[in-house]
Write a protein that binds this DNA or RNA. Sequence first.
DNA 1: ATTAGCACTCTCCCGTGGAGACTGCCAATG
DNA 2: CATTGGCAGTCTCCACGGGAGAGTGCTAAT
Lengths: 346, 346
Amino acid sequence: MPDTVLNERALKLLKTLVQRYIRDGQPVGSRTLSRESALEVSPATIRNIMADLEELGLVSSPHTSAGRVPTAAGLRVFVDTLVTVKPLQKKIAAEIANGLSETGESSQALVTTASKLLSQVTHLAGVVTVPRRTHGQLRQIEFLQLSDNRVLAIIVVNAREVQNRILKLDRSYTESELRQAANYLTDQFAGNDVSDVRSKLLGELKQARESMNEMMLNAISMAQRAFEKGETEDDFVMAGKTNLLDFAELSSVDTLRQLFEVFNRKRDILHLLDQCTKAEGVQIFIGKESGYEPLDECSVVTAPYTVDDEVVGVLGVIGPTRMAYERVIPIVDVTAKLLGQALKMP
Amino acid sequence: MPDTVLNERALKLLKTLVQRYIRDGQPVGSRTLSRESALEVSPATIRNIMADLEELGLVSSPHTSAGRVPTAAGLRVFVDTLVTVKPLQKKIAAEIANGLSETGESSQALVTTASKLLSQVTHLAGVVTVPRRTHGQLRQIEFLQLSDNRVLAIIVVNAREVQNRILKLDRSYTESELRQAANYLTDQFAGNDVSDVRSKLLGELKQARESMNEMMLNAISMAQRAFEKGETEDDFVMAGKTNLLDFAELSSVDTLRQLFEVFNRKRDILHLLDQCTKAEGVQIFIGKESGYEPLDECSVVTAPYTVDDEVVGVLGVIGPTRMAYERVIPIVDVTAKLLGQALKMP
DNA sequence: ATTAGCACTCTCCCGTGGAGACTGCCAATG
DNA sequence: CATTGGCAGTCTCCACGGGAGAGTGCTAAT
């Protein structure tokens, strides 16, 4: 036994073991390891070290006479301290940058593109949460009469987002009533932070119920309805689920079934992604660390993306625990940065 | 050999064979068939008849000593002449009706719900094309200034559909210019069939280029841009892909991969669905009849749905060839009718 | 501490040999 | 002459077993 159990040599071996395992997904034997690692040691020595690593819970053997496979803990050590992030290929960086710049206006489209790019470049499943701009500036409110009692509210935020919402009202309004209401509201609230608008509306309504004329009251109550449930349900997009079919270790139909089910339910995944807004920079969940049973055999690599220094969403990829972290990490990293930039542009 | 080769008894046997095969997906032997069918004949007789049916290409045996399995041709005969459609369970009809009536306003939402209902009720994959109303009445056009040179066009059709489109223009317009343009266009074209508007715009522009004032010219050219590319890309929705994972015969990971890929590409499927708008009533494609290799082991059951006697879209389900046609056919049928009704409502 | 050698273990891949399920054919039957 | 019972033949499925290959753990030597 060496001075400290996890000495440099052991770590170097762990690193090559993980790299090899990631490459072809099979247990790595001592002979292979002795050839692969630059270290000049015999297989026998490696076997000893492996026994140590196994005791520490960093590797394990599927059965007596197979090589070793890194455990989740082993992978964690790898990504935390051993991984040497490959410099991003220019070609790939360009692919992402182009993809995003070629995409048109709406932030929804940008998010979808980002997700597709991630999946395309990493050959994993890409996920991106829809940006939730807590500090957007309300630009304009407009109402259109659709039919009796039904009014279309259009809310423009930040010169980019456009939200439609159909309101059913208790009576019908004339066109000029609607125009007046819209003008009043736009005058009153344009430039306000959109997260404040709702509470201000409530305050306004309560504070001055009697001092206002009917028109204003109507306008405010309509606006309230329009701002209700501001979150849309479609709050993240995902591309490349089929890439997961490529990996042998996920290919039991049952595992796949579970996986696809989770992606359909969305909520669980979203919760997981939400946690990532707190940290900054790339974050990695390996296996059970995600806390969701169906993802036990998956890793998730995420990074928050920002607009004007404010975190507005998270993106990342989901794949088997044996994904190519060295490649994936920088990809997720720059995609987050580029998406942030793309969203900022006018 | 009987009078005519495909006599009544042979057909009855084919029917029970198909039913049995659909039920549990395994080859059916002569003994089973003799018990199952109400016919009082011995297995030996049945073996003779089976030999005949095999010669006709309606059944086949996977190997010498397995029972018989219906071929695609056999299934075709079954659905064309033998199937006795089960009366739709009230519970299911109610489920669909409720599901649709509880869904809110937008036709997009209705379509998604319909797709989900189909998949939920049949345990297959549900598909619905987005309604393409060729004869919708234009109700209103509105323009909103977003930022310099960027204008949001809002087109209201039929008191239900709302389309947004962002236009990049060569100069910026004042609010009143936009309002005038919108008013002019709404006056001019409201009530027109939306499919005519574009051509009328063109005509108007050409015919009277000099006689118009600049405002009108601007209005018309803006409107033209707004009506370009009227089709959205997201032209059908699909729910319940995961249901396909349930069926043993589709569960080779490779088959599944192909299948999911097809659903992602969308275009091929859409083409297939488009063909179904021509026929009326329920239409069935068995195996290769669909013409798409990845669907070789699948059947597609579709029905067009109508609004005001005009076919506006197609819905249906996709599943393995051995799907429960007797149950699925009426479900697809009523869903089409109910969706049509739901879309018609104000 | 490292290494070579060796016995041991476990998987994977065949080939083998019933057991079970049907068929196809033939001869008997009404 | 259609139908039936009987019977041999065929094919799958599964369990068993043995040999090859890979890799380990232990021990004794360096």
